[in-house]
Design a binder for these strands. Sequence first.
DNA 1: TTTTGAGTTGTTCGA
DNA 2: GTCGAACAACTCAAA
Length: 486
Amino acid sequence: MSSRPASIVWFRQDLRLADNPALSAAVARGGPVIPVFIGSADDGRMELGGWEPGAASRWWLHQSLVALAEGLAGLGSELIVRRGASLPVLRALIGECGATAVFWNRRYEPVARDLDRAIAAALIADGVAVETFNAGLLYEPDEIRNQAGGPFQVFSAFWRACCKLDEPLPPTAAPHRLVPLARAPSSIALEALELEPSIDWAGGMREMWEPGEAGAAKQLRAFLDGGFFDYPVGRDLPDRPGSSRLSAHLHFGEVSARQIWHAVRARANRHEDPAAEKAAEVYLRELGWREFAHAMLVHFPETVSEPLRAPFARFPWKRDPAALRAWQRGLTGYPIVDAGMRELWATGWMHNRVRMVVGSFLVKDLLIDWRDGAAWFWDTLVDADLANNTLNWQWVAGCGADAAPYFRIFNPVLQGRKFDPDGDYVRRWVPELAALPARWIHSPWEAPSQVLRESEVMLGDTYPSPIVDHGEARKAALAALAETRS
DNA sequence: TTTTGAGTTGTTCGA
DNA sequence: GTCGAACAACTCAAA
């Protein structure tokens, strides 16, 4: 048995063994390694300021922790699961194990950052070594500054600055073995964290996803070996598997942005094909948006609840619980919107193109506050991520980081026709419209009554009539904007 | 300091 | 159906 002191690795959003700097640092010390996951307290106390994972994310987290525990078992170790406020749990564990160091990978949510800083200070005051690492991002938010030394608020300039830096470090391999403690500290069962729903509504998710490091690696391979060359076009077509579908794996750190970055570069470099280079560039730019969202969250922490553009604080949002509910349930009468909302409900995920369409519809057509949309996504998305959710909802609401000088209002019919031209996406998620010909599927209210009859569609009965007129709603949104600016 | 160039993802209108 | 122009005209970043 090793005489070197034990080290604790505190897992949070880095649920992987490979390319995990906190884990590597603990292994490098040579002593026993104690991997721990701490679930939130069962007395309702919210350490993360109300941004604890939502229902869909909790389902994913449970599966991912199961996978992590299996992976650790394969290295001769055991995942210690505890519950409660993080600092007292860590202190207790340190006492039980005689650990002299705690390692973790950094988080970027404002409340989590404050918490981590306070915990680090307290442990250091206890005489425990603490070291934290960047495991989640290609670049630390503080690394990227404009010429004036401030944070970027425009994506393109931000990403140009990133691309001038050295490329991200190559990922490291998983350790071969972890030294266990002679007597393992006690652990509660994963089930005791009560992450899984009490009513089993997760069937659609089980079918669609394989949470965990192995599932993430599989998904990355499938993406790169599949239609990767077609990514610039295919990513916009919701009926096709043209996007990477790595968002939830990335959020929980089952794969790192660095690993993806290098895998994509290697894939593109294998070919002389300019299409491969183009696809890599377009996709890595999306990773760039993730970086940008995290940097914005760090530099503008109040944007989780307040608009980045101050005048929008007086935007005349409407309170309309019935309309909000129709949107949530996929009963707005606009097929592309309803398809997206139902895909979200069934699978915990929605295609990015459709996220923009449903977001624009909630905010611009229904004039409902973007924070209501963000809250719904937070609870229903398996990839719910505070940085991305905040940035994207503010973008779609027009109150965030978007350099366009005009107020974008998506037309749900045109978006449907353009990106789901055959209507197959709508047919999959809105089966009551399945028999409608492509010509009418995105605007059933325009279909001749005979077509509706033959398709067994009864508007207002088997499928709702549009809950708002888009043309009218557009005018109202522009009027509300004018009011805000005056 | 002032000026200039440029900015994820769009829509509508009229020919 | 398809095309190009007009829409509206704001901020940020860098020169």
